[in-house]
């Protein structure tokens, strides 16, 4: 188990480094420059983990294949990557909470604050995308292409949404979406659905990965 942690640790550190750098830059920017310049970036903070984490995990082609090739038990590898996904996302969200709260404290009109209550919502959403990315690695060829494309589309939607919301905010149209909070009925349902889908996809990934032959 320990070597798996070291193996994934590098990926994790690189990722969290990028996220921290981004958050620090945006926060500093929001502090020392007029908010308008950095506005769109600040809006990206809460939703960043939704696409960056899955992309990172799916990006190393051999994430799960490599330990398996070298004789690591598949269940250990799978478990480790699941834990990694959750940890990555939680860290990202924690930083987002910190970042947005700080920005709000300096700019009272900024109201896209991510509260701690919003964490479960985004965590569930992010895990859904992550599981899809992992599943895409292990589906049989034909299905693989389709899932990969669905994934790409999803990520693009998320990206554009985050920027759109910011844009809409900028124009001043109030959106009932915010604040994101797990206890608000709409978001609660969303969270549960995402969580359920994530679990189903996760189980599917395990079943395919377990029986996979590292392809030549």
């Amino acid at each position: 188990m320990r070597n798996l942690v070291r193996y994934f640790g590098l990926t994790f550190l690189q990722y969290i480094g990028v996220v921290m750098a981004f958050v620090v830059l945006v926060v500093l920017g929001a502090r020392y420059t007029p908010l308008s310049l950095f506005e769109s970036y600040t809006y990206m903070m809460p939703t960043m983990g939704l696409w960056l984490a899955p992309l990172t995990l799916a990006g190393c082609h051999s994430t799960m294949a490599l330990p398996t090739y070298f004789g690591v038990r598949r269940w250990n590898t799978f478990l480790c990557i699941q834990i990694l996904a959750v940890v990555m996302e939680l860290c990202t969200l924690a930083l987002a909470v910190l970042g947005t709260t700080l920005i709000a404290s300096w700019n009272p009109e900024y109201d896209m604050v991510l509260s701690v209550g919003g964490i479960p919502v985004l965590l569930a959403a992010s895990l859904t995308v992550t599981e899809m990315a992992l599943l895409a690695q292990y589906l049989p060829r034909g299905a693989k292409q389709r899932t990969a494309s669905i994934l790409m589309v999803l990520i693009m939607i998320v990206l554009s949404c985050s920027i759109t919301i910011g844009f809409v905010k900028a124009i001043g149209i109030p959106l009932a979406l915010f604040p994101i909070h797990a206890l608000r009925p709409g978001w609660a349902v969303f969270t549960l659905v995402c969580a359920a889908v994530a679990v189903i996809l996760g189980v599917a990934t395990w079943r395919f990965y377990r029986k996979a032959v590292i392809r030549l």
Binding site: C60, H61, S62, A65, L66, Y69, Q137, I214, R215, L216
Partner: peptide, 11 residues
């Protein structure tokens, strides 16, 4: 294994 450019590990 025999590795090929199409292998998952080839990247």
């Amino acid at each position: 294994r025999e590795m090929s450019a199409a292998s998952e590990l080839a990247g």
